[in-house]
């Protein structure tokens, strides 16, 4: 007994080290495998508002750029509208009515980690729920994950565990987009079978199969498509339309039909 106490006395710093490291390991594992926030993250109100202030200061330096982007988007929308008034048949009314959009501002963002998360300034009070889609900057941005009253933490498309169902226009209907974790300008397009003829420059869109994102939203264009011998699928790199370093405003998409779809799915035995 005495020798045990002596042992504990002698190695108490080392034992404390092990205990504290075990605690940290628990935090890390909990958050990467169980998708549950055990501890504070930036959807916490105090932390989010501090990040928001610093972000506002930083945004001042990009106002001009932001204005140009908005003007461009306005022009594109106006062009689109012109087409619709001339030819109402091309108007895809279904997908417009199926989704409603909640506007939000990005208050924190990163592109340098493997698990990048984005903090936005809307939360449960604005009707945000888990696993809603987030779009913006002309493309897709990510999915909602942790939600507090006024803020939401979004798993970015630049998060190695985010997968988005995608299609290649006029060619492939079922494929998946996933980020490899290195270059924030490129993602991989997985599961494109070898019998298709894929060329650099092909456009990649959301397929809408997940019900999270509206269909036919641009994701990017094929930058390179290689086919290794005996590989079942292509190795495809897709250049993103979004510049994730310059993300300032996003929209959260709410699929109004999702509850109905989900309840149907639960009826399948």
């Amino acid at each position: 007994m005495k020798s045990l106490l002596l042992f504990l006395q002698k190695y108490k710093a080392f034992i404390t080290l092990l205990l504290l490291e075990a605690f940290c390991a628990l935090l890390i594992v909990q958050n990467s495998h169980y998708h549950r926030a055990l501890f504070f993250n930036s959807s916490n109100a105090a932390i989010a508002s501090l990040l928001g202030v610093s972000n506002q200061v930083r945004n001042y330096f990009h106002l001009q750029e932001e204005n140009d982007k908005l003007a461009e988007e306005n022009a594109a929308l106006r062009n689109l509208m012109k087409n619709f008034s001339r030819n109402p048949a091309t108007f895809q009314y279904d997908s417009v009515r199926q989704f409603s959009y909640i506007r939000a501002r990005v208050i924190d963002n990163s592109v340098n980690k493997r698990h990048n998360l984005i903090t936005i300034n809307v939360g449960a009070r604005h009707g945000i729920k888990k696993d809603m889609g987030v779009i913006g900057g002309g493309g897709i941005v990510g999915k909602t994950r942790y939600i507090s009253d006024n803020f939401t933490l979004v798993t970015s498309l630049l998060h190695t565990e985010t997968m988005v169902p995608a299609l290649i226009k006029d060619k492939v209907n079922i494929a998946t987009v996933q980020w490899r974790g290195d270059d924030p300008d490129y993602v991989d397009l997985l599961y494109v079978p070898r019998h298709y003829h894929i060329m650099p420059g092909d456009s990649v869109f959301t397929s809408g199969y997940s019900g999270i994102f509206p269909p036919y939203l641009p994701i990017g264009t094929v930058a390179s498509a290689t086919l290794r011998t005996d590989a079942q699928f292509y190795d495809i790199k897709v250049k993103l339309v979004n510049d994730f370093r310059r993300l300032t405003h996003v929209e959260v998409t709410r699929n109004l039909e999702l509850p109905e779809i989900d309840s149907l799915k639960t009826q399948v035995p």
Partner: peptide, 29 residues
């Protein structure tokens, strides 16, 4: 031991802001 506890506090603080959940805490301890 108090040093490690200070390291833990600082690390968890940085983790909370960077959404890294315990990584900085582990390194600081």
């Amino acid at each position: 031991i108090p040093g490690m506890l200070l390291g833990l506090a600082m690390g968890l603080g940085v983790d909370a802001f960077s959404n890294t959940f315990g990584i900085h805490a582990a390194a600081s301890v």
